[in-house]
Amino acid sequence: MAGVELLSDQGFRIDGRRPHELRKIECRLGVFRQADGSAYIEQGNTKVLAAVYGPHEVRGGRGKALHDKVVVNCQYSMATFSTGERKRRPRGDRKSQEMTMHLQQTFDATILTTLYPRSQIDIFVEVLQADGGNYCASVNAATLALIDAGIPLKDYVCASSAGFVRDTALVDMNHLEESSGGTELIIATLPKSQQIVFLEMNSRLHEDNLSAVMDRAVAGCTDVYNVLDTAVRDHVGETAAAIGGDAA
């Protein structure tokens, strides 16, 4: 097979999107009863489930507790069936560990940690299907789950990625675009204050193009925020209606 063309002359990406377009996002809050908060998100074919427990007492060794803030404990894992080829992924492989760390850093910076000293919040993220942008989808799902759990946050954390092909920045890369070996910039922001919580970039990119790629990724985050916010409002509306219905 000859090399694939990531961006056609007519400005279409491989899956028919234009460079600035996100994949289709669908999400639901409160998918588990057992967890304190949970959410499920689909970004195109990337599907992620997140569950939040806590705040609760610190489990497993008192020593881990912090006297002035909450311990944010994350766990990222990918289902065996999440990729094209079935592959057993033992918990704690290098890739998951790295992702876990990244999530932990992201949410340490977003949760109002000082409100719950000497306690712990657990965030579990499971990727059910991976098709690019796993980190972004995980962050978005975890945000929704935290909101569902009612844990105070500074703001939504929304993540998005951007790449650079044929002098054009592409937002929200799918697996095929990611694996072509080009640049990928991953960013997580607090959309209201436009603050960057997390930023990572792979491969090389000329300095002149950096701002274009970053702008595109930040714009992607804002778009994600709009979708998430609508979903949260709908969910809250539904819940309120349900409660209101009971009360009536």
């Binding site: 491989i14 899956d15 994949r23 094209g84 080829e85 098709d131």
Partner: peptide
């Protein structure tokens, strides 16, 4: 796949 095993892939298409 790279090793020659059959691989089923799902790709999205966005229509406009």
């Amino acid at each position: 796949s790279g090793q020659g095993r059959p691989l089923k892939v799902v790709r999205e298409v966005y229509l406009r």
